[in-house]
Write a protein that binds this DNA or RNA. Sequence first.
DNA 1: TGATACAATGACAACGATATCTATTCTAAA
DNA 2: TTTAGAATAGATATCGTTGTCATTGTATCA
Lengths: 350, 350
Amino acid sequence: MIIKKILLKRVLVSDNSCMILSMENKKATIKDVASHSLVSIKTVSRVINNEYGVSKITKSNLFIFIKALDYNPNKAAQGLRSKKSFLIGLVYDNPDKFYLSDIQSGVLETCAKNGFSVVLFPCNHKEKDLTEKLIEFAKRTNLDGLIPTISHTDMKELVKNLQLEIPLCVVSPGLLTSNPLCVSSDDFKATYSMTCHLIKQGHKEIGFIKGHKDHGAIESDLRKVGIRTKIDDRNIRPGTKHYDWEIKGVPIRLEIGPIFASNDAMAAGVMKAAHKAKINIPNDISLVGFDNSPTASQAWPSITTIAQPIKEMASSAAQILIDNISNKSEKKNINKTFDSDIVVRIDGQK
Amino acid sequence: MIIKKILLKRVLVSDNSCMILSMENKKATIKDVASHSLVSIKTVSRVINNEYGVSKITKSNLFIFIKALDYNPNKAAQGLRSKKSFLIGLVYDNPDKFYLSDIQSGVLETCAKNGFSVVLFPCNHKEKDLTEKLIEFAKRTNLDGLIPTISHTDMKELVKNLQLEIPLCVVSPGLLTSNPLCVSSDDFKATYSMTCHLIKQGHKEIGFIKGHKDHGAIESDLRKVGIRTKIDDRNIRPGTKHYDWEIKGVPIRLEIGPIFASNDAMAAGVMKAAHKAKINIPNDISLVGFDNSPTASQAWPSITTIAQPIKEMASSAAQILIDNISNKSEKKNINKTFDSDIVVRIDGQK
DNA sequence: TGATACAATGACAACGATATCTATTCTAAA
DNA sequence: TTTAGAATAGATATCGTTGTCATTGTATCA
């Protein structure tokens, strides 16, 4: 009986695929692997999808043929049949390029590891009908999931509506707890420690500069809370002195003391203003930033700042999302928080 | 006869798709559009692919149904049948993040316009077997085309081998003429004009700083040629004075005069060194950079620099590649060159 | 021994589009 | 009229996978 079966199969092989050795330029399909390994295409499918119900022997045997034939599953066919696209959308709105770059590489690496590709969707958070546009984009591109990042002032509403249409995992600066799947950094803890750092240096008064109201308003606020709490905690006064400067023609009243800027770009702006006003940093006033962007290290003097583990966060978000899409995780609510680090730079000190 | 036909079709409609109005949550397929519009699916296919052989009336009628049913062709099915993936790979090796960001958005916009998605492939140009890895990546992801950007020192060899496997359009700083499809910026012209700018300010001696040898060596060299030519042209000496500074612990001998840095990051480094050495910029020495990165505008004083139309270049490259893939252009060799602009900043001058 | 359960495997349809080939309709010239 | 040929439309196979359901083989139990 067994012999008969094998013979039967060998005939099949010679019918369909003995020519394959001479068709070297054509890509191997699941059919080729199946006929060479003398199993059905379904069994091959089971192996490449790591499904249950294939014996160890068959499996290891198949892996040999898969390798030998240089077989790669056709994504289009897989997608067509299984209604997946293996595409994940990364949504962002003009963030700091370095931030974006880290986010991207984190998402990218994880997606690649899992056989997914990343489609980028830059957009303006102030755009009308952004929710509709995002949904339309997700549908048109047939995305399996979406990773929204900064910065959408009205993100809560947006995220809520998007969730109804497509799986999401949000990468959020500061703490956001309203989303089922979410990765965030603990800005509160970070600004709190930074404030401690300033207080340890003997400062009794701390100024804070918010970023532009259209960008990262949420983060700024959360960051401020961290300082404020520490300030209240220790009976330190918030900064009250000020001088005036401007950025792109817009006058800004700058509270001084030691200054805590809500991001490094703002810190660089303060430095520029200080240079003009002949105020020496760090000897006349202290200045710290947030983000650990290259600006902070390239400036003179270089700026003490806070570094978020952005890439790790992004990578984690992608993994959570993919697990969710693939039903590998049963949890419906995952909220992962990462801690940030203070990067102390002292090259300008007396 | 005509009546008979229509009746027949109406029956078909009620068989297959009158329910569609109540199946609102399901995506419309080409079949739905066909049955609603009383034409064959092939005709719908002709319309969405802008093929020859459909009357204007049928066409405009179809568009109405396509819109009404919110029909979007299924990329997986299209790809499976037509052996296309509608994916374009963007290859880059750790460039300046701002450069990357511009490249990306240019490629992205154009691809989106043409119904293509972008897959990112960050890589290390020094990696062994990079060519093989790229080919493997292109095959595995089933890419339709590839856009290699900076920076691959041995790019010529790489590009030559890649071309045999997959359509390419190279985005190159400086002039590269060896590739069939190529978009480049004229760095020579730009550095030449910048040198003219410095000479016009009365300088007789010009120093040049190359970037790190692993990054953008090609660009640096090409940029240098631009200066050098102008220098020779006008009997200006290259810089000979110097002082020593260091970057990340590595001592660097800095030629001074006015200084032309091969990129803005290098210019920022020079400024830092100058600050330490109590040399005033721009009053003691002039300093210009290259790239127009935010560093150049955020620094104090802000740095005069050269801006390449990066995004336009990237966008153009994507379009050329897509046209080539789609056989829309018959030209086999396209080499498009863009001019760069000088961005003069003077806020630090006496 | 026969019934039963379960692991391993296979046959075949289906996913949603395009390609190929064929059929019909329309127009203009014989 | 007739008819050639262009314009238009349709029927059906096909792309490479996975989903569904059926079948086989083997170990366990009563």
